[in-house]
Structures are given as structure tokens and as C-alpha cells.
Amino acid sequence: MNKVILMGRLTRDPEVRYSAGENSIAIARYTLAVDRRFKKDGEATADFIGCVAFGKQAEFAERYFRQGIRIVVTGRIQTDSYTNKDGNKVYTTDVIVEEQEFAESKAASERHTGQTVETPLGAADANGFMNIPDGIDEELPFS
């Protein structure tokens, strides 16, 4: 079984690119700083783990994830290798994202990062209320 669950903070905004071709898909790459359980010489240490999200997950990351926010990622580890332009073999290890979500409230994230984080439709804010965009009233199943 290949299953990974990580919780950490984004080291920078996700880098998003789109595949070439008619049916292009979004590909988001970001790095999570995941605190280690034990301190070394009294200092907290972290591992920096590369994550890759595809499709809707990548679009979500592009829209809502910002440097410093804490998220939880579930996925699988994937290793690969390639030969760089100098002829050296380079080995890579990434987490392929299957699920991702916020690991702290919007208010806590804003306190930590110092910037406003947009609340996605359907997600509750710090007060437990959902963000419903203007003009969507006619699509709601109640009146």
C-alpha cells in the first residue's frame, strides 16, 4: 500500500501550469514544510516535501492556497528519475495529491500569513458560516 498523509505549511504559493493539447489539465506543484516530531538540539526542524496536484485539485490549489497556510494532503509517493542537461541522473520523490484541505480556520491562517484568504464556496469561515457568492440566489434549493 502507498498512502501518505501530511500536514504542513506551504513554503510559497503553488506553481501552476497547464498541459499542452486540446484537453489541457492544470498541474500544481507546491512544497509543504512538515514539522518533525522531535526537536534537534532544542530547535524545531522540518522536512520540505514536494507535492503535485492535477486537474480540479490543481485548480483549487491555484485559487485558494497561499504561502504560509496550513493544509492537510493525502496522496501517494511517486519516485522518478531523469538525465539533466549536464548528463547527470537526477532522482525525484513527490507526493501525488489525491485529497487536500485546509488544516486551520481562515482567521488563524490570516493571523499567521498576514494576508486575506478567500473562502471557497461550501467551506465554512471562522464563524461557521458558508460563503455564498452574489447572484447565486436562484440556484439555491430553498427560498
Rank of each mutant, 00 (worst) to 15 (best):
N127G: 10
G8N: 09
A126R: 12
E43D: 13
N127M: 11
D13N: 07
N88R: 01
N88F: 06
E15S: 15
F65P: 05
E139S: 04
T31R: 13
R29G: 04
G87C: 10
A26H: 02
D80S: 13
T11I: 05
Q78W: 12
N23R: 08
I77Q: 01
G122K: 15
I71Y: 02
A46E: 12
A20D: 03
R12G: 05
E62L: 13
A46Q: 11
A126M: 08
G55W: 11
R66M: 12
I136N: 06
G42V: 13
I136A: 06
I49F: 04
V52N: 10
I77C: 06
E110D: 01
R37W: 05
A107F: 14
Y18N: 13
G68H: 02
T93Y: 01
A44F: 09
C51I: 03
R76M: 07
K89P: 08
A103S: 04
G68W: 04
E104V: 09
V117E: 07
I25L: 09
T45H: 08
Q100H: 15
R111L: 02
N88G: 07
E104F: 04
G75A: 07
P120C: 03
M130I: 11
Y18T: 13
G68D: 00
A107C: 02
I132H: 04
E43A: 14
N23D: 11
R111Q: 05
A20E: 09
N84K: 07
F129A: 06
Y82G: 09
V4D: 03
S19H: 02
A126P: 09
Y64V: 05
E22Q: 03
D80W: 07
L10Y: 07
G8D: 08
Q100F: 03
A61R: 01
N2V: 00
V34M: 14
R37N: 10
G75R: 09
G128R: 14
S143Y: 09
E22W: 06
D94T: 12
D41S: 14
G114Y: 04
V97H: 01
T113A: 10
N131P: 00
F48A: 13
